[in-house]
Each structure stands twice: as structure tokens, then as C-alpha cells.
Computed example of a mutant assay.
Amino acid sequence: MSRKIPNCSLVTPTYNWPEALELLLISALNQSRLPNEIIIADDGSRQETKELIERFKENSPVPIIHVWHEDNKNQKPKIMNKAIAKAQYDYIVEIDGDIIMHKDFIKDHLEMARKNTFLYGSRVNIQESYLDELFKKKQTKFNFFSKGIKKRGRTLRIPFLSNFYKKQDKRSSKLRGCNMSFWREDFIKVNGFNEKLVGWGIDDSEMIQRLLNIGVKGKRLKYRGLAYHIYHKEQSKDHIHLNREIEDNTTKNKITHIPFGVEQYL
């Protein structure tokens, strides 16, 4: 008996970078298996981003939902909670707003989805020196020999090799929020992203640690789920030590549920 492939919501945060969001959306609508909906978690972008999303909505074969709140510095956990609260489907595929997906990205995540498991993939880096050409061409297709990329080994899609990666019950250093997927019901069980986290970083890994604490296991998506990350300057890490303290406490005390999360939007 064949396994039922879940329906999914593709969720991505964005903030005032419509050029990158445009390439992301082009790649999303060129998937071999489309997501059932695309939800853009907008952390307070200006009008230009709204207009871009409206243009894509006109011709999209799947609903595109724009979840926006006012710009109040970095509030990614809050806007992601609001977005996932609106998700209509059982499985969440999360990418960053500066990701271009391989055409089989959604297919790979859904075919590898299993109950009581989250998936995490890697990314190929698009170099700063290539950005002008990237945006001019609106390029969304890459391969091992493409110009302007690093980590070429990560461009290889060899599905049968991905089966050799086993589930883990500890958080991997390879985990990246730019390329992961999980069951919405599991996300709600741990109350989603922790809105006590401030500034950039740690929000994805801290939430994943709570999934591990309730017994959900992680599986690395290697040789499938290929993603290309558009270069940008690193965000300020002024507050990251505070976020690490919260994450360390989550790990040490096996915390499974936090007070300020997705439940307030359900």
C-alpha cells in the first residue's frame, strides 16, 4: 500500500527585500509538486513588497497569503507564529525569504515526511559577486557547474542516497531554519516559536529543541530538498547571547512548552 503524501503550506518570512522574494516565488510556482498554499510572513515590509505579492497572486495556481504586521525591529518569531496559525494544511515547509528552491524541493520534503519526525536540509550559497547578474537574469535554476555558487557538492540530487540518513533524537549542528519541515500539530504542541527571543538567530533551533523534547525526531534531508541561499550581509548579533541562554535552558530543562507562542493567534 502506497503512503499518502501530505498536503502542505509553504511558509517564508520576509523583510524589505522584494528582489529576493521575487526569485523565491518564481521558484515556488515552478515546483514539480506545488505546495497547497504559500504563506508570506512579512515582518513589516514597505509597500513595494505588498505590490510584488499582489502581482504574483493574480496568476498563481495556489493561494498566496500575505500575513503582515507593523515594523517593530526583528520580530520573526511573532510573524512566523501568526503565519503558521493561518496555515490550512497538515505539513509545514519552512524556508527563508532569501532562498531559491530546486524544482523538486517541495516534492522531496513531502515524499520524505513521516509522522513524529521533522526534516532539515542544507543550502548552496550564492556569492555576493554574482548578485547583480542573478537579479538581472532572475535566475532560479542552478546545477553543479553554475556560476556564482559555493558548496557545489550540495547541488547534487541523488534521492536514493538520502534514505541512508537515520532519524536522530539530538539537535544537529547542521540544522538551518532556511530549509526545514515539520507537522503543524507538533508545532502547536510546543506552542510554536518563542516570542521572548529577541533580534536575529536561535528561534528555529530553540523551537526544534522543544520538538525533540516531546519525542519528535529529526532527519537530515541530504541529496534532496536542494536550496540556494542568496548572499546578504549578516544581521546584528547583539542579542544572540540572550537567545542562547533561552535555548540552553530549553535543552537542559527539557522544556516542551513556552508561554508566548502560536496559541495566542489560533
Rank of each mutant, 00 (worst) to 15 (best):
F182R: 08
F182L: 15
W183H: 13
W183E: 12
E185C: 08
D186Q: 09
F187P: 10
I188Y: 07
I188P: 05
K189S: 13
N191V: 07
G192I: 14
F193H: 14
E195K: 08
K196A: 11
G199A: 10
W200I: 02
G201S: 11
D203T: 11
D203I: 05
D203W: 12
S205V: 15
I208F: 15
Q209R: 12
Q209T: 12
N213V: 01
I214W: 03
V216F: 04
V216L: 04
G218D: 11
K219I: 14
R220V: 14
L221K: 13
L221G: 14
Y223A: 00
R224D: 02
R224S: 05
R224P: 01
G225L: 00
G225H: 02
A227M: 09
Y228M: 03
Y228D: 03
Y231C: 10
Y231H: 14
H232W: 03
H232N: 11
H232P: 08
K233P: 13
K233H: 13
E234T: 06
K237L: 06
I240C: 03
L242K: 13
N243S: 08
N243I: 01
R244Y: 14
R244K: 13
R244L: 14
E245Y: 03
I246K: 05
I246A: 05
E247L: 06
D248I: 02
N249M: 00
T251V: 06
K254Q: 08
H257T: 04
H257K: 06
P259W: 07
P259C: 01
G261T: 08
V262K: 00
E263R: 06
E263P: 01
